[in-house]
Amino acid sequence: MSSNALYTDLSGYYDLMCSDINYQQQSASIHRLHQFLGNNGKQHLDLACGTGPHVRHFIDLGYQCSGLDINQPMLDMAMRRCPEAQFNLQDMTAFYLEQPVDLITCFLYSIHYSAGIERLKSCIASVHRALNDGGIFCFNSVDKHCIDNRLSIKHFAEFEGYHFAFESGWHYNGQGEKQSLNLSIAKRQQPFTQLTDFEADTSLHQTELWQDQHTMVATSFAELQALLAPYFEVHIFEHDYEKIVPWDLSSGNALFVCVKI
């Protein structure tokens, strides 16, 4: 598959794939950070917005929202979910807004879809141009030096009489600016009986299996801070949407809150 095929062909399953994500909690957490560090404006843009679940919650929090993604099937679903919002088919590494906004978000590690340092630089510059004075850019990131290639996340769901097993994990070879996000979806009529049955079950003839590998940009947090520094005052917090805690300087997942300067 191409780097984008999984999301394009299976966009109808995207919400199911992310059904374990607490979008409301994530949105409320960034709203609090915007209240503390931002300009209190209510114009919001969500980069790599997907089917619009975060946009939905920001609308409910009183924001005037827009979303941007490179997948039209995702945007079609987002428009049905959030008819009040504006959605644009654009690449987040080189986008343009007619009117600046006060808050730009990029959830679910989507900042790494920039797929290279130069494209990441372009994304950061585009975000800076799109923000009002005092506006903030919020995103989560993973430090390449903290990636454990052995780890993955799995969860199971049911939809229209089928049972799904979703698995994702980061991989970094230890050098360079490229890492990958490895994804798989298994679909079958019988349930996946337990977590350890996943690999065995996917070999059975009644199981449909999709696999994809997305090329992502790899950075350390120090490198990322250096890229952001010409444009923003950078604050880094622990990857915890329940409370606001400064980054402990060692964990490999963090929330970046960047105030335009």
Rank of each mutant, 00 (worst) to 15 (best):
residue 1 M to F: 05
residue 3 S to T: 09
residue 4 N to I: 10
residue 9 D to N: 13
residue 10 L to S: 11
residue 11 S to P: 04
residue 12 G to P: 02
residue 21 I to T: 09
residue 23 Y to T: 06
residue 23 Y to L: 01
residue 26 Q to N: 01
residue 29 S to C: 11
residue 31 H to I: 00
residue 34 H to D: 15
residue 39 N to E: 11
residue 42 K to S: 03
residue 44 H to P: 06
residue 46 D to K: 07
residue 48 A to V: 10
residue 51 T to M: 03
residue 52 G to E: 15
residue 53 P to F: 09
residue 56 R to M: 14
residue 57 H to T: 09
residue 59 I to E: 15
residue 60 D to T: 08
residue 61 L to K: 13
residue 62 G to N: 15
residue 62 G to T: 08
residue 62 G to H: 11
residue 64 Q to K: 09
residue 68 L to P: 09
residue 69 D to I: 01
residue 70 I to Q: 10
residue 71 N to Y: 09
residue 74 M to I: 12
residue 76 D to K: 14
residue 79 M to C: 11
residue 79 M to P: 03
residue 81 R to M: 07
residue 82 C to E: 03
residue 83 P to N: 12
residue 83 P to D: 09
residue 86 Q to D: 13
residue 87 F to W: 12
residue 89 L to E: 14
residue 99 Q to S: 05
residue 100 P to V: 12
residue 101 V to H: 10
residue 102 D to H: 05
residue 106 C to I: 02
residue 106 C to L: 08
residue 107 F to E: 05
residue 108 L to P: 00
residue 111 I to Q: 04
residue 112 H to R: 07
residue 113 Y to T: 15
residue 116 G to W: 00
residue 117 I to C: 04
residue 118 E to Y: 00
residue 120 L to I: 07
residue 120 L to E: 02
residue 121 K to F: 00
residue 124 I to L: 09
residue 124 I to F: 05
residue 125 A to C: 05
residue 126 S to R: 02
residue 126 S to D: 06
residue 133 D to A: 14
residue 138 C to G: 12
residue 139 F to P: 06
residue 140 N to S: 01
residue 141 S to M: 07
residue 142 V to L: 08
residue 143 D to F: 06
residue 144 K to R: 01
residue 146 C to M: 11
residue 150 R to V: 12
residue 150 R to E: 08
residue 152 S to F: 10
residue 154 K to C: 12
residue 158 E to L: 07
residue 161 G to D: 01
residue 162 Y to H: 15
residue 163 H to K: 02
residue 166 F to V: 05
residue 167 E to V: 06
residue 168 S to F: 08
residue 169 G to V: 07
residue 169 G to Y: 00
residue 171 H to F: 14
residue 172 Y to K: 05
residue 172 Y to C: 11
residue 174 G to K: 10
residue 175 Q to A: 08
residue 175 Q to V: 03
residue 176 G to P: 14
residue 177 E to G: 07
residue 177 E to K: 10
residue 180 S to Q: 13
residue 180 S to M: 00
residue 181 L to E: 12
residue 181 L to D: 12
residue 183 L to P: 04
residue 184 S to P: 02
residue 184 S to M: 09
residue 185 I to T: 11
residue 188 R to I: 06
residue 196 T to N: 12
residue 196 T to E: 02
residue 196 T to A: 11
residue 196 T to F: 06
residue 199 E to I: 13
residue 200 A to C: 03
residue 200 A to H: 06
residue 203 S to N: 11
residue 204 L to P: 01
residue 204 L to F: 10
residue 208 E to I: 06
residue 208 E to G: 04
residue 210 W to Y: 13
residue 210 W to R: 08
residue 211 Q to V: 05
residue 211 Q to D: 03
residue 213 Q to Y: 00
residue 215 T to I: 04
residue 215 T to V: 10
residue 216 M to K: 14
residue 216 M to E: 13
residue 217 V to E: 01
residue 219 T to N: 13
residue 224 L to T: 06
residue 225 Q to D: 05
residue 227 L to F: 03
residue 227 L to N: 01
residue 231 Y to G: 12
residue 234 V to R: 11
residue 234 V to F: 15
residue 248 D to P: 14
residue 250 S to M: 03
residue 250 S to P: 00
residue 252 G to R: 01
residue 253 N to M: 10
residue 256 F to S: 02
residue 256 F to M: 10
residue 261 I to P: 05
